[in-house]
Write a protein that binds this DNA or RNA. Structure first.
Lengths: 214, 214
DNA sequence: GACTCGGGTTACCGCTAGTAACATCGCACC
DNA sequence: GGTGCGATGTTACTAGCGGTAACCCGAGTC
């Protein structure tokens, strides 16, 4: 049949694709986000044009590679987020999951956070919005959805949930990035501090010297 | 005297430097973070090597350029942060100041958020920490300092303030970036939502369906 | 046996960051 | 007044990047 043949071919192509992605993975793990197409092709034992045939351009390979890790990370996060525990516990466990991930494989993390940036300056539209890494966007949307599903926010809940989703993800990301660089405290302490922040401890704390007027 | 002579020269050099920075500014405003050294040199009416003599490498020019905008933005933020108002008001006004700035000049904002990245792959150490834009780091540290000065957090206040500083800045940044791309609501609404988040409304809200067990 | 077709390579383009080498002007110094 | 020296500027280059055109070859098919 024609179809079986095509599936055969497609399977072969998919296998190749996976092999290439794994090679790319190794290079990224070694070289960080600067991994060049040449280096990836060499690691895979082939030459550049094949990479381009499979992924179109560097952005395509980036996207495919990012999707794998992003999916994996999001799965872990969902598990923590959906656990049958109380909210504070779930928040802390989610934060901890994320931080453990970036701690375990910082090079991959750097790669994922790197914005795509079609470097061949041809079609750089004025899309100012797409600065953030896709991973951050996806995590933000995902978290927003969970918040809206599980937390009762009254009217405008969707808007609020989306703002909070992206905001919390950004908080997690920035704090994690800083922490990874300076290591000023243990992971557990960081998690507790962030959860405290989300729990309104900033608003509840008193002013330092005298009244709030000055 | 020798000194006066040197000051003369230095003044001239400084003026040149400022001129070059202004030209670079114009190009960045037009081309975004992809502004090339060639383009900047052309805009300034000179050629590349002069740029390199003044700023060392692209990172140096980037740093000098970023410092100007960062200083300006931080001044605005400090003003909002130090106002003699109550804490919630100060927080909202600071958020609004930041968002107004990135809304007014998105190209500059993109440039500032772009990590430095010594692209000439020579000396790329394993410093995984320096992924974030210097602007974010500086804002985080600054905010941390203000928090520690003005908010009474008991023991470990320094640690907590630093975590919160970076966390809040990250929240602001991510939410702002998302908002700038999708424009799902007005600036004022965004500010209020974020302040609500910081004020613990997430913790205070009820669960959606029945008990928290499932 | 000619013919197409997928997987692969070589050799190139245009661009980037960065540099070496050469030219030139102004100014101090003997 | 010539002379050297330092800042200012240029041209012309390197090395490496993302990306592509052109060719090449083995397998299957009529």
């Amino acid at each position: 049949m024609d179809t079986t043949q095509r599936t055969d071919q497609q399977r072969s192509a998919d296998r190749r694709r996976r092999e290439l992605l794994e090679a790319a993975d190794r290079v990224v793990l070694r070289d960080g986000p600067q991994a060049s197409m040449n280096a990836i092709a060499a690691e895979a034992g082939i030459t550049k044009p094949i990479l381009y045939r499979h992924f179109g351009d560097k952005g395509g390979l980036y996207a495919a590679l990012a999707k794998r890790h992003t999916d994996a990370l999001l799965d872990s996060l969902r598990a923590a987020l959906d656990a049958p525990a109380d909210r504070r516990e779930r928040v802390e466990s989610t934060l901890d999951t994320y931080l453990a991930a970036i701690e375990a494989r910082p090079q991959v993390y750097r790669f994922l956070m790197h914005p795509a940036e079609g470097s061949a300056g041809a079609e750089q539209g004025f899309d100012v919005g797409k600065h953030s890494a896709p991973l951050l966007r996806r995590m933000g949307e995902e978290l927003a959805q969970v918040i809206e599903e599980r937390v009762d926010l009254g009217p405008e809940s969707q808007q609020l949930a989306r703002v909070w989703g992206h905001g919390i993800v950004g908080m997690m990301h920035a704090a994690g990035d800083w922490w990874l660089g300076e290591r000023p405290c243990s992971r557990a302490e960081l998690v507790r501090s962030l959860a405290d922040l989300l729990w309104g401890r900033l608003a509840a704390a008193g002013d330092r010297m005298g009244g709030p007027g000055f």
